[in-house]
Design a protein around this nucleic acid. Sequence first.
RNA 1: GUGGGUGUAGCUCAGUUGGUUAGAGCGCCGGAUUGUGGAUCCGGAGGUCGCGGGUUCGAAACCCGUCACUCACCCCA
Length: 420
Amino acid sequence: MIKGIKGVKDLLPEETPRWRLIEETARRWATGYGFQEIRIPIFEVTTLFARSIGASTDIVEKEMYTFQDRDGTSLTLRPEGTAGTVRAYIEHNRAADPVPQKYFYFGPMFRHERPQAGRLRQFHQFGVESFGIADPRADVEVIALLWRVLSALALPGLTLEINNLGDTADRETYRPQLVAYLKQHEEKLCGNCKRRIETNPLRVLDCKVPDCRTATEAAPHLADTLSEKARTYFAGVLAGLDAIRIPYHLNHRLVRGLDYYGLTTFEVTTTNLGAQNAVGAGGRYDGLVETLGGPPTPAVGFAVGLERMAMMLPDTAVVSTPGYTTVYVAGFGIQGSAAGLLSLEELRKAGIRAVSDFRSGTLKAHLRQADRLGCRYTLIVGDDEVVKGLGVLRNMETKVQLDIPLLSLIPHVLPLLSGS
RNA sequence: GUGGGUGUAGCUCAGUUGGUUAGAGCGCCGGAUUGUGGAUCCGGAGGUCGCGGGUUCGAAACCCGUCACUCACCCCA
């Protein structure tokens, strides 16, 4: 048997309603905030991701699905959505458009990791990117949208954490201070963090190992080395969040895994996701557009994991689709089968939801299927009915049956359906 | 990449110190009702016991290997 690829899941019909609810909620709110949908390819040239995400990040170092095109070009299945969106923004010169460039997207992302609860190799994100606005209100707008979408879905146990990473220069001054501190306390750190002192010292602050946390309690804070400009900007973001009543927690340890973030960075976590706790995250990335060859362009965005939202979404949130009136057509017998097929098509052409099960050869089997499918009515068309030219419309709840002329089916059926 | 757990019917799972024909519940199909659903009763179909070796008179069970799923580490959505 050919099986699906490890970490790549099928979404069966039983699960798609909860996904539709999530997608429709996200799309509605994003549109309401003035974002427009963009659809970008799921693969790009490898250098796009290497340059934007950061060559020394885990994603680029060991998690990308990379392969050669026939001409030898290195291509990669997208591990996230921002790089491609930025590429499209530059390529189509959207900076020249005077209208605010605020995009949202849905789609699959690919990372070669060992799957576990809440983590897949093909997973799906809803993301948002806001280009060209260097104003704290742009950050606030993006964070508010994220928070409103998650709140609208009534996802439990959410916390919004936010931090100020400062600009590149700020981090350059801070880094040696932190490294000096970490080297003094190196013995207390876990093996991973010892290595991180050289590779990614900021990441040590975000380590979950309790000893590492206590060891870094007294570490110098990035906040103390921030420039006046970065501070006032961040203060503006917080003031905006306060004004519109978005609850947040300052977390000076919050560091994101992608290189392009600066200034505002945020993450929404939950306690309901197994070992995983991030539902969605984002931040400001003012340098990225330029890095990728575009004009200097401030930008903010976020991405949320649809699988993670789906896991947390309470079952009660997914209401069973409101009882559409469906007519089951039970055509059986030699002539009845043929006449039934005709009636089925007539109903469908008239916009009436109609189904049948062609495996069923007896009326009993047909009625059983009609029942299982939850159909409100069954149109019985056996050989006897064909002879008389009258089908029998059975109300499955009341068991009341009416004769309906098969030749003028729709005018007779339609009033019954709208009346019920 | 590293570690733990689990692989028996479509699904959820039993299966005794290794013993003969591998079971149950649910689901499915049929009958009771020769043309009327759900409930009940009766009957039926459905299995390479993940795969490959080994031990044994005999393996679903024990040993080795392997694969898959899963949880966790790492990292992240």
